[in-house]
Amino acid sequence: MDLDIIQTKATFDFHAFKLKVIYNRMKTLYDMEKYDEAMSEAKLGIEEAIKEDRMVYMGNFYYYLGQCYEKLGYEDVEISKQYHKAQLFFELLGKDYLLSILKDLKGKWCY
């Protein structure tokens, strides 16, 4: 048996895992209506994604940041900025399903 093939398939991507954990924590906090904490996690996720050059969750982080801004009563222009950033990442990454959800649920803030 070729152990090199097994080892190659068994590699662990710590940075991708870390972003997934941050995303899940953010989503859970949002669902628990802990919007300030969810907002902090979204910002942390954005920082970590930029630092590690991992863009896969960027649209999701900006989407939840926009939702937190809504719940916390931020100005419409700030809410709109977050949803627009989410829209850009969903478009760039070809996440059509998430893009359609964004436009259906948050269309008034999208460009």
Score class of each variant (00 low, 15 high):
78 E>R: 08
87 Q>C: 09
94 G>R: 10
71 K>S: 11
88 L>H: 10
93 L>Q: 14
75 E>H: 08
68 C>F: 07
75 E>V: 02
63 Y>G: 03
82 Q>L: 06
86 A>T: 13
61 F>H: 10
70 E>V: 08
75 E>T: 04
78 E>I: 13
70 E>P: 00
90 F>C: 02
65 L>R: 11
75 E>I: 05
79 I>T: 09
66 G>P: 01
88 L>W: 09
92 L>C: 06
89 F>E: 07
69 Y>S: 05
74 Y>K: 15
61 F>V: 10
84 H>L: 09
82 Q>F: 02
80 S>I: 12
87 Q>P: 04
91 E>M: 08
82 Q>T: 10
60 N>P: 03
78 E>P: 06
87 Q>T: 11
68 C>S: 14
61 F>G: 12
80 S>R: 14
87 Q>M: 15
80 S>Q: 13
80 S>V: 08
71 K>H: 12
94 G>W: 07
62 Y>D: 14
66 G>Y: 02
91 E>C: 00
93 L>T: 08
64 Y>H: 11
70 E>F: 06
67 Q>I: 08
82 Q>E: 08
80 S>D: 01
94 G>A: 06
72 L>A: 00
82 Q>A: 12
76 D>V: 11
73 G>P: 00
93 L>G: 06
83 Y>M: 03
71 K>F: 05
91 E>Y: 06
79 I>D: 05
74 Y>V: 13
65 L>F: 05
63 Y>I: 11
81 K>P: 00
67 Q>N: 14
60 N>Y: 07
83 Y>K: 05
75 E>S: 01
64 Y>G: 00
63 Y>F: 15
71 K>P: 00
91 E>A: 02
76 D>M: 07
87 Q>H: 12
79 I>N: 04
94 G>N: 03
67 Q>L: 15
60 N>L: 07
84 H>K: 09
88 L>F: 10
93 L>A: 12
61 F>W: 15
74 Y>P: 05
